[in-house]
């Protein structure tokens, strides 16, 4: 393949990757920013989203687009509620102690993963694409659905920004993020906010899963790699920074696409991890983080 189309293909692949990654990382970053806890189970909420999408799409007969739309509405809600329950039942009782919550979320990770193995089984299961259109770009073909994934992620990111910047709920979140004690003194119900944020964080990852599963299949072990990449993105972008997360996701996603295509996927992972080390050394708070923890 010639260099031009080669680069175009690599960038498109990278964009799809970046779109989904930015959603997953955004959820992780939101939870850390507001609650100051590291959610190791985040990847499993993503996996849960994919598996529930498979259930829904199997349950809804007829046009795959219908099943997909219903999944897009229901699945993030269900995953969000499950996450809220795990906050209410477990994390709240640990008083959000940073070290203890890491251990607790590792526990949640295994519970969700094994539950998925016991119910969903060990196989990868496909979900039909809502529309099956192949765009012929002369040098290579590209699925129209992948463009839809990129487009949907952009819209969703814009919505999150809108909520954070322009609504009262966003104001409450930002206040809690800046100083939870002062926020509480102003009458903000911190524990409710925490539960909601934990739910919303998981739900955003679940949206990413609904979008990706028609491309990648649902599998009970699929939560591992996105978690690792989301951590990389969040560390590079700065924990709790929306802008940083999106920029870092683009950087990691697109460079992963290009390096994978031109060289090898392993090299892409190596370089991403190296970038984390460099960022931690030079800008320990991330590229975009201005608020001190």
């Amino acid at each position: 393949m010639d260099l031009g189309p080669y680069l175009l293909f690599a960038s498109l692949e990278g964009l799809v990757h970046a779109a989904v990654l930015s959603l997953i990382a955004l959820g992780l970053s939101l939870v850390f920013g507001v609650m100051r806890i590291v959610n190791v189970a985040h990847g499993e909420f993503f996996m849960l989203g994919a598996i529930l999408t498979w259930w829904v799409s199997n349950f809804v007969m007829g046009n795959p687009a219908l099943g997909f739309l219903i999944a897009l509405l229901i699945v993030p809600l269900v995953v969000g509620i499950i996450a809220m329950f795990s906050d209410l039942l477990i994390l709240r009782h640990l008083k959000y102690d940073p070290e203890v919550t890491i251990i607790a979320t590792i526990g949640i990770l295994y519970i969700i993963q094994q539950f998925a193995l016991m119910t969903f089984g060990p196989d990868a299961r496909p979900v039909e694409q809502p529309f099956n259109i192949r765009l012929d770009l002369y040098w290579f073909g590209f699925s129209a659905y992948k463009f839809f994934v990129i487009f949907s992620a952009i819209i969703l990111l814009f919505c999150v920004w809108l909520v954070m910047a322009k609504t009262k709920f966003g104001l409450i979140l930002r206040a809690t993020q800046l100083d939870s004690e002062i926020a509480q003194a102003f009458g903000i119900p911190i524990s409710t906010v925490y539960s909601l944020v934990f739910g919303v964080g998981a739900a955003i990852a679940a949206v990413g899963a609904v979008l990706i599963v028609p491309i990648q299949q649902a599998h009970y072990l699929m939560g591992g790699e996105p978690l690792l990449l989301a951590f990389i993105v969040v560390i590079i972008g700065g924990l709790g920074s929306l802008k940083g997360t999106v920029v870092a996701a683009m950087l990691i996603g697109i460079s992963d696409g290009i390096i994978s295509v031109f060289f090898s996927p392993n090299l892409a992972k190596i370089l991403a991890t190296l970038l984390v080390v460099v960022v931690l050394l030079i800008r320990p708070n991330g590229l975009f983080r201005t608020i001190r923890i």
């Binding site: 393949m1 080669y6 293909f9 690599a10 692949e13 290579f140 491309i215 990648q216 299949q217 599998h219 699929m222 790699e225 696409g257 994978s260 295509v261 996927p265 392993n266």
Partner: peptide
């Protein structure tokens, strides 16, 4: 790699 989940990047 046998654990790979997306393959397009290898086809070019």
């Amino acid at each position: 790699p046998p654990t790979e989940s997306s393959f397009s990047k290898y086809f070019p």
